[in-house]
Every structure is written in C-alpha cells, then in structure tokens.
Design a binder for these strands. Structure first.
Length: 989
RNA sequence: GCCCGGGUGGCGGAAUAGGUAUACGCGCGAGACUUAAAAUUUCGUGAUCGCAAGGUCGUGUGGGUUCGAUUCCCACCCCGGGCACCA
C-alpha cells in the first residue's frame, strides 16, 4: 500500500506550481469573468500563527472553488509592514526596524508558500516599501487639496515623566500611566486629521445597499452614532444687561455661530436635541465645563469663583470617572445669568455640569426633566421644576415619562383588514384587561366567553359587516412587562391580532379620517402599512403591531400652546421651525486623527515655512523618504523624526532656510485603507492604481477578515474609497461588496491563545507532522466560517481529518474502470451540489463533512469507480490541493501515455472545471416515509419516492405499532407529505 | 440601559419556505487482528424505565398557534459582541 507521504507530496507540488505559474492572474482572461476575493494582509510580526492560517487557508478553498467554476480569480497577499512592534524591537534589541521588518517578511513569505494557497504572489504589496508609501503620501496630498485632511488641535494624554503621548489604552483607570506610573495630564497638540465626519451620513446610508451581515452593519452604525434632531438657540436673558431691546435686536442679527466669537459678549447658546417636541418642558439649561461661552459670560456670572472651581475639578477627573453613569450628577448654577426658553419664553436657569460632554452635539443641552432620565435625576437633586409636556402612551417604552407623571390610555390595534379590491388595509383598535373588556368598539364579554372568544366574535361580526372574511386568526394573551407597574396595580394587558381578507370594504371617505383616528377604526393605505412594517418584518406580527400602534398613537403634546394635541413626532419639526432652529444630525464619530509620534510609519509629506504654516511636499519629491539617521527610544517628548539631521537638511535644501519638516508619521490604518487597489496594479509607476484596471476588478467581491476591524480598518477604507471616488480617482464608491467576519481559534484549553497560558499552537509543527492539507481541511471543518465563532484547537479533531485524508489516499489504490452504481451516482451528484453550495456560503465545515460521507461510501466498495473518484478529487481539491493533485496525476498516468515529466498547467486538477450536477439525479429513488400518529413517530417505511397517499396509508395501517394507536379512536384526518411522511390524526373515543 | 448575534449529546457542530432532531468529526464502550501495544477495522453511543418488544422525556425556561414546532408568535433567563451620562 502506498503510504501518504504529505511532506514529499507538498514540497513537490508547491515547487511545480510555482514553476508553472499556476496561480498567476491576468487582468483579463478571454471568456472569464473577473472575481476579486481578499483577505486582510498580515503585519510581519515574524511568524505565521494559527490565526493567520485560519485567515488565509480557508478563504483559499473558496478562491480555488471560484477558479474551478471558471472565473478569473484575483486572490492576492501582501504585508502591512509599518507599525510599532518594529520600533519597539529596535529600541529593545538595537536592531534597525527596517531590517527587522524585512527579515520577518522574508521568513513569513516562505511560511505562506507552505500553506499551498493559490495566492498570486507576483502582485505582493509591502506598505513600508517607498514604491508603496509614495502613493500613500500622494493620496494624502489629494485629500489635503480637497480639504479632507486638515491640521487641528487635539487633546492628547500626556505623560509628564516619559514626556510622551499615550494612547487611551496606556492610561490606567486611576489616571496614571501604565509605564511610568505618573499622573497623566492633558495636552493640546496640533495634529493631522481626516475629515471622516464629512462622510458620516454616506457611511451610514450606503450600508443599506451592502450585502453584509447585519451584525457588521449595526456595529458601524453604532460607531458612527448618528442621531437626528434639531439645533435650537436659547438667548441669554437680557435682564442682566438692563437693556432688553438692544440685546434682543443684536441676538437676531447675529449669525448662528456668533456665540463663540470672543469679542462680542455672548448672546445665545446653541443646543442639540433629539426631542425638540419637548422644548416647552425645558426648565433649565446645562453647559459642559469646557464650553467656550463660560469664558465669555464670566463678567456676568455672580458666583464665578464657585463656577471656576467646579470647572477645575472636572478637569481633574479622568474620562472614566466622568463617564461613569453610576456617579451622582453634580453641577453649579450660573448665578445672575438666565436663558430664555424660545418656546415658552420663560426665563430658565443655566448650570454647568460635567454630565454634559463637550465633544458631543454643541456641548450644551436644554434640560427636560419630565422626559429625560438624566435631566430628571439632576432636577430632583437641585430641586428644579419638572414640567410635563407630552402625554405618552403608558406602554410606549421608547419615550416613557419620568416616574409619577401622567400617562394616557393606549389604544391597541387588534385587527388588520385588507381590502383586496382596493388594496387598502383597515386597522381595528381595541384595548382591554383580563378582567373584562373595558373599551373599544367590540363591546363586552358575554357570560361564559373567554376574552379571546369575545374578540374573535367581534372581529367576525365587523368583518361580516364589511363583507370580509377572516383568513387567519392568531390571538395571544401576553403578560406584558410594560404594563406590570402601571399605577402600582399588577394588571395584565393583552391584545389580539387578526388578518382579514376583505372582498369589498367601505371606502375610506365614508369615515372622516379625524374621527377614525380618535376612535377605533383607522384607515391607512397599503404603502403606509408596508412602510411602517418594512418588508422583512411582516412575519413578526406582534412586534410590528406594537410598533404600528406606537406610530399611530404616540404621545400628544400638552402645555405647549398652539401645539397642544399634536402628535409628538409631528411636533418636532413644527416646533423647531417655529423657534428658528434647524433640523440636523449629530454624530458620535470624530474626525480621524492620523498623526502618530512614531518613527516606523509613512512620513506625512508636509513641511512648514518659517512662520509655521504647513505646505504640501510637491509630487516630484515623492516618495518623501523616511529618514534613516534617527535616534529611537529617547524621551525627548518629540517624534523620533525630529532627531534626523538628514531630514532637516533635506527640507532646508529643498525649501529654504528656516523651513522645518513634519515630524509625525501616519497611522498605519492609512496604509491599509487603499492596499486592495494597489494589488490591481502593483508595478504602476505613474498612477497609484489605474482606473482601467479598477474597472476590471473592483469592488472586492468578498472580503474576509477579523471582527476587530469592523469599526476601524473597514470603516476607514470605506471612507477612503468614498473620498477618492469624489476625487474621480476610483471607479466605485464602496470598496467591498461582501464582508465576512471570521471567528477565532482558541488554544486546546478553550482559552484565547496566549504566551501567558502556554497554550499557543504552532501551526508549523502540525504542518510538519500531518501536512498542510490536513491543517487546511481541519480548519475548514472546525465550524462555520461565516459566523464569528470561537473554536478550540482539538488534537483529536485534527487526527480525525488526517485519518480522512489517509482513507482517501488508500481509496485511490482501489480505483477501477467499473461503472458507478445508481446509488453512488446519486450520492456523487448530491455531493457536488452540497459541497459547492456550502463553499459558496462559507460553510466549509459541511462541505468537508459531505466529502467524508462520500469517501465513507467509496470505502464500502471493493472497487472504486474511476470517473466518480475523479469527480471526488475535484471536490477535494480546494481543501487538500496537494493530495488531490497527486492522486489526480496518479489516475491519469494509468490510462495516459503522458508521463509526469511532461506535466503542464492544464494537467493540474486545479485547472479542471468544477463538476456539474444533474438535478434529476439528486433525488433518491426510494424514500423513508415517517409514519406518525398525532404527530408522533410510530414507524418508518421504505417506499418508492412516488408512492401515492392511498398506498402509503394502506402500508402504514398494516404496521402493528401503528395499528395499535389507530384503533384507540377515530381517524379524523390524514396529513400526507409525498416522500416525507404520513400523519394520522386520531380522536380518542 | 439601547442595539446586534446566539443558546441543540460528554465536546466541535448538522438539520429551519414547520415534516423522521443530533449528519460529519472527536471522545467514550465492546469486539476482531496482534505474544503485546500502537495502528487498522467492525459494532454501539441523547436521557430514562424495561429481560425484551416497546414506552416516556428531550433543541435555555414558561406559554401560544398547528395534525405536527429546534424552526413561527409572546414573555422571561443566560452567553457573546457593538455603543453608552451621546442630549
């Protein structure tokens, strides 16, 4: 028996594939569609770890499958080679970061080759190569020209001992530095930013069109954190000035941002709110301690010392202290200064309090204690008035009133009538309690009736009047949480939902719309209902139905003068307009700070004139080289580039005496924001990536990577792509058509692999022992790849996969020219279908499992039919490319005159077409029919697929196990599913 | 707190336009081969009652709809992740 010598096979084929350039991809191949699939390129840390294997090797099976399906597949690889570890290694061991990085790349490149991936390595990109970062700089300058890159102030964590900038992660919760232990301070530095906030809306809105997992979209939405609301202007009360008229006049004439002008005394404060409808309930205002207007109002504030003290205190607090929700709210009133509520015209007090964040919205809020939890807590503490201006429905969980305030009765939609003739829907409203129906058109419960029965009756009556037919009923009783605490009484609310089809329903005009809203019958048209429901949700009736009713019955305004009675949703815009505010959006996301006070990164191509004004380095000087004569690891408080003599000389030589370079380098996320475009055109010396080539490949069809990059790399590169799109430099506005987040491989103990636990699995050892094919197949088999799972490395599991491959190797010895049996042919075609389908959806585990099923079946045969086995090898090829290739050749040699020496590309199993399956052969000729009585399995019959109900029934009734139950009562119904089951419904006598 | 995922044997996981739950692999048990072990191989393997035939229970918990629910609906619990004094 020929043993499975993985080492020999893998070495041989890797060499030969390379020689024959098997995986080289042209930008155009006659008769083939282009398909671009991508994995995140690695940082060259020195060694490929298990995570890299999982990230590269499983998507490789997909890329190989696509190739065999006849597509021209681009599957490139490169190195994201700028970054901190190189610099740290340099400081620690005195090695040049350049040398360290490129040695690592050389080593990892070899390791990658041993994976047996179908990477086209001729397109490799390395971000620290001057040929690459020349274009990173060029793109930076393009964004700079467009005003998308700017220099601004940033507050950074500053370690006064080490004299260095710290990342948030380097600051301990107690506010001291992780490294030096010094109390970390704040320092304002001039830093470079990208204006990603300009793209916030598009980054959110365009997610809609993308075929991405909801999980990823939602994470991006949360990260961007858009909220829609209004900017409203609150005037400072003129009484302080003693000159009412003039101040008001001034305020009206001044442009919006005048409040922040330092020369004019401040006259108004801007706030952002998502609830302009509650404006009339605003009883005070709060400014964040950092708000500029505090400085401008200084003269007027009577207790300015107290205020100043408070502001100093909050500066002392760390971010974590300040954002701790559990902490009691504190604040100080600005005595002697009042604001005017633009709605009610009342004078209201102004506070400074650190529960308001300077960096969000306008850094100032209008406080509505009746309708906001935080404002309520603050108002309680400082004894401020609470004024309720909305009567919400008591079940409105989104906008509950604060404790002890009034609620209205909610009307609940209970029926949903559709008029087939007009396509209109009618909603019937009703609300009740378990004790008895209290309101609604449908009257009460008759004696002996359950509430459900009562409602059903009413619905049917109502339907009959309208010539409607109830086609589905689906009543519920729910002990709904939102009602439990109502007025201290533990009441249970319930509601019912029916869909009725209506043959002819009275026209909308017959019931005045207003009346319909107030009472019980509400007319809406189909579009409105569908809009409210959304196409996907129509199944989730209960939740839709609540949502719908909350749309129809949301809170009504009170105490708001002319707006009273208006729906709170409608009031938002009306009130905003009335008081001269504007509807707008605010975002959580901040501009992307790209400056890094580091050495090993892409230099920012900017120089400063003697006055300190920034100027771009012109294109002809790119790449703006990273200097080599720097001193690393010195605690100068400046970026390492500042120590380069060469850089200074270069700048003075090119630009003039007194000119200085930018010392910071770019965030490495900039490098990786466009790398997928360089793969397309890696040798282009005149363009970063030609549009012609982009047209051929972009967007990336499927991009697989780590979940940790969802809100960083993926978001940043989407921004880049959009910005470049607007500049006319790229052909697509979204870079990735599909994005999938891969899971994590854990140590054998189920914990995250870490040196600390001593559970790090070295893939090289396993490759040595069982082979790359085995590790590849094992990683594909471990679990679904399209979900973010966490899978422990299982030694038994990998042994099982090795056994499988050995079995396949043995099977090849039994191959003969025998015809495949009908059964094997059927299984083969089923396997072609399943393996392909599951690779397509990244569920490689079930693909492998199907291959195992097929090989188990082959193993039962004395002789393995050759054609079937060849098909099997094609299915195996994406997972175990070396073994499949070896066995493919061995089969070929037998019947062919050509020997191994004459092997060409086209002889490769990887150049074969993916097998087709015959739909007709998928069905098994016989089926196991389940025999059920009242839904319980009582037996199984093996019958031809097409057996009729009568025959199945006759056969089934003969079974003793079934007969026993059939005689217990009368068979009232028989459910028959052809080829699947028969179910006898027996009513006991 | 809000939002997004998810909860199935001892373990990784299969199966959802509602239709025989636990495919495939690991582990475990028994047998064959062997002087022996490993390797290989055959059979068994959700729980429970039973000598057996067979019964009962079983997809986080409690309800509902259905002839039939892991799958649909409601409520709750737990785990993972995103955001969070975000106005």
């Amino acid at each position: 028996m020929k043993s499975y010598d993985h080492k020999k096979i893998e070495e041989k084929w890797q060499k030969r594939w390379e020689e024959k350039e098997l995986y080289k991809v042209e930008n155009k191949t006659e008769g083939k569609e282009n398909y671009y699939t991508l994995v995140e390129f690695p940082y060259p840390s020195g060694n490929l770890h298990t995570g890299h294997w999982y990230a590269f090797v499983v998507p490789d099976a997909f890329a190989r499958y696509k190739r065999m399906k006849g597509e021209n597949v681009l599957f490139p690889m490169g190195f994201d080679s700028f970054g901190l570890p190189a610099e740290n290694a340099a400081i620690k061991h005195g090695i040049d970061p350049r040398e360290w990085t490129y040695d690592n790349i050389a080593h990892m490149r070899d390791q990658i080759k041993r994976m047996g991936n179908a990477f086209d390595l001729s397109r490799e990109v390395v971000t620290s190569d001057p040929e690459y970062y020349k274009w990173t700089q060029w793109l930076f300058l393009k964004l700079y020209e467009k005003g998308l890159s700017y220099r601004g102030k940033a507050v950074v964590n500053w370690d006064p001992v080490d004299k260095t900038v710290l990342a948030n992660e380097q600051v301990l919760p107690d506010g001291t530095a992780e490294r030096s232990g010094a109390k970390v301070g704040k320092k304002e530095l001039k830093q470079w930013f990208f204006k990603i906030t300009d793209y916030a809306d598009r980054l959110v809105d365009d997610l809609e069109e993308l075929d991405w997992p909801e999980e990823i979209k939602e994470a991006q939405r949360n990260w961007i954190g858009r909220s829609e609301g209004a900017i409203l202007h609150f005037k400072i009360a003129p009484s302080v000035r003693n000159n009412t008229e003039q101040t008001q006049k001034n305020a009206e004439e001044l442009p919006r941002n005048s409040a922040s002008s330092p020369r004019e005394a401040a006259t108004s404060i801007e706030v952002f709110t998502t609830r302009p409808d509650t404006l009339f309930g605003t009883t005070y205002m709060v400014l964040s301690p950092e708000h500029r207007i505090l400085e401008e109002l200084k003269e007027k504030i009577e207790n300015r010392d107290e205020v100043a003290r408070y502001i100093d205190q909050s500066k002392e607090k760390t971010e974590i202290e300040r954002t701790n929700e559990a902490q009691e709210k504190t604040g100080v009133e600005l005595k002697g200064v009042k604001a005017i509520n633009p709605g009610s015209r009342e004078e209201i007090p102004i506070f400074v309090a650190d529960y308001v964040i300077a960096s969000y919205g306008t850094g100032a809020i209008m406080a509505v204690p009746a309708h906001d939890e935080r404002d309520f807590a603050f108002a309680q503490k400082y004894n401020l008035p609470v004024k309720q201006v909305i009567l919400p429905c008591k079940e409105d969980r989104n906008n509950p009133p604060q404790k002890g305030l009034e609620e209205t009765e909610r009307e609940v939609v209970v029926a949903f009538l559709k008029n087939n003739a007009t396509g209109k829907y009618a909603l019937l409203n009703w609300h009740g309690t378990l004790e008895g129906i209290t309101t609604g058109i449908m009257g009460g419960i008759d004696d002996g009736e359950t509430p459900e029965e009562a409602v059903l009756k009413e619905i049917q009556e109502e339907a009959a009047i309208n010539n409607a037919r109830v086609v589905r009923k689906n009543p519920w009783i729910s002990s709904a949480r939102y009602c439990a605490s109502h007025k201290g009484v533990n009441r249970t609310s319930f509601a019912h939902w029916y869909i009725c089809e209506v043959d002819s329903l009275s026209e909308q005009g017959e019931i005045p719309e207003e009346e319909a809203k107030l009472h019980t019958l509400i007319w809406v048209d189909e579009e409105e209902v569908l809009d409210a429901l959304g196409p996907e949700d129509q199944k989730n009736m209960w939740s839709n139905f609540l949502r719908l009713s909350s749309i129809l019955d949301s809170g009504k305004l009170i105490q708001s003068g002319e707006f009273d009675g208006l729906d709170s949703e409608d009031a938002k815009e009306a009130i905003t307009k009335k008081v001269g505010g504007e509807m707008t959006s605010t975002y959580r996301i901040r501009d992307w700070l790209l400056s890094r006070q580091r050495y090993w990164g892409c230099p920012i191509p900017i120089v400063y004139d003697p006055e300190g004004n920034p100027h771009p380095v012109s294109e002809e000087h790119l790449p703006w080289l990273l200097p080599e004569d720097v001193k690393l690891g010195e605690l100068t408080g400046k970026s390492p580039l500042a120590t380069s003599k060469e850089l200074h000389e270069r700048v003075e030589h090119l630009f003039g005496v007194g000119w200085t370079p930018e010392y910071d380098t770019m965030d490495t996320f900039v490098d990786s924001s466009w790398y997928f475009l360089r793969y397309l055109d890696p040798y282009n010396e005149t363009e970063f990536s030609s549009k012609e080539v982009q047209k051929a490949w972009m967007p990336v069809a499927r991009y697989s990577g780590g979940a940790e990059h969802t809100t960083m790399h993926v978001l940043y590169s989407r921004f880049f792509q959009k910005a470049l799109f607007d500049l006319g430099l790229v052909t697509e506005s979204e870079p990735y058509r599909e994005r999938l987040n891969r899971g994590l491989i854990l140590g054998t103990d189920g914990r995250k692999m870490s040196k600390r636990w001593g559970n790090v699995v070295d893939p090289d050892e396993h490759v040595e022992r069982v082979g790359a094919d085995c590790v590849r197949t094992y990683l594909a088999f471990i679990g679904p790849y399209n979900e973010v799972g966490a899978y422990p490395w299982d030694m038994g599991g990998i042994a099982g996969v090795r056994r499988f491959l050995e079995k396949v190797n043995t099977l090849s010895e039994k191959v003969s020219d025998k015809e495949a049996s009908e059964e094997i042919t059927q299984l083969l075609h089923e396997s072609i279908m399943k393996v392909g389908r599951d690779i397509e959806s990244f569920k490689f585990n079930t693909s492998v499992s199907q291959l195992m099923v097929l090989s188990n079946r082959f193993a039962k045969e004395e002789e393995v039919p050759k054609e079937a086995f060849k098909t099997f090898l094609k299915l195996l090829a994406p997972f175990a490319p070396h073994l499949a290739e070896e066995l493919w050749l061995s089969l070929r040699e037998r019947g062919s005159t050509q020997n191994e020496r004459g092997w060409t590309r086209n002889d490769s199993v990887h150049m074969q077409a993916w097998p087709e399956y015959d739909e007709a052969l998928l069905k098994k000729p016989t089926a196991e029919i389940a025999i059920q009585v009242n839904g319980k399995l009582r037996g199984v019959l093996l019958l031809p697929l097409e057996t009729s109900e009568e025959e199945v029934r006759a056969e089934a009734e003969k079974l003793p196990a079934v007969e026993k139950y059939l005689t217990e009562g009368e068979v009232s119904k028989v459910v028959f599913v052809p080829g699947k089951l028969i179910n006898f419904v027996v009513k006991k006598a």
